[in-house]
Amino acid sequence: MNSEVCIDPMIPLPARIQRVVWETDDTFTLLVEPKSENGKRFQFSPGQFNMLYAFGIGESAISISSDPLKQNAIAHTIHRLGFVTSELSRLRRGNFIGLRGPFGNGWPVDRVKGMDICIVAGGIGIAPLRPVLYSIFHNRKEYGRIFLLYGARTPLDLLYRVELEQWSKLSDINVLVTVDHSDSSWKGHIGVVTNLFSYITLNTLHTIAMVCGPEIMMKFTIRELQQRGIPLEQIYLSLERNMKCGIGLCGHCQFGPKFVCKDGPVFAYTQVSHFFEKREI
């Protein structure tokens, strides 16, 4: 076989499922062990994604949601929605999936040292942001204040509940969680994620915001950040688009002049603001 073919980024490599964690009734986390190619370990940056292949069914682009330092158990938190994710949801420990990646750029975790970090996550948007938190915790002293504002639909839809609980007990991170609605059993905040800004004070020139969630939620969040005086160039967001290749060749993920898969999925807001405000980009 020609060597050129073996490194073809379109070819998935089998990866063993180490563990399946059901986060909610329709969202689960697959922890997989990537095969190391020629002794090269699988390394990724927070915000990158993999293309996961369900044998014979197809592929889905899934953000990596684990600690970048844990290279032998790569987590993917997946919302069961389509054919591929439904098939992935049926797999168990010891089964194999195909994996291509990691693709895309990441959050500017290293470039924003010394700053306060305000992480705003909506729904499953917390998945690509979790590696940011792990990275910050590994180098906690190199960052200023850390805020995590997280919104979900109902308390049952909250992901990573055990970790949220642990993090909220830490003194060096301010964790605020809200749900859109609930019954009386939930004692936390109720209301949209943007409401949570009322409970924190941001040092405007010293804060980097990282936002991920449904596009409308990000739009509202950016407006809120802007209203609170955060300069637009300090806001980063992660976009979702249809992806077939993950390497900028298939054309599906175009967002104006950007290929979300290779130029993103993380963008500085100012890179995409012109198109972000338009419909059907």
Binding site: G56, E59, K244, G251
Partner: peptide
């Protein structure tokens, strides 16, 4: 140049 993939 756009393309898609099909699994069978």
């Amino acid at each position: 140049f756009c393309s898609t993939v099909e699994d069978i």
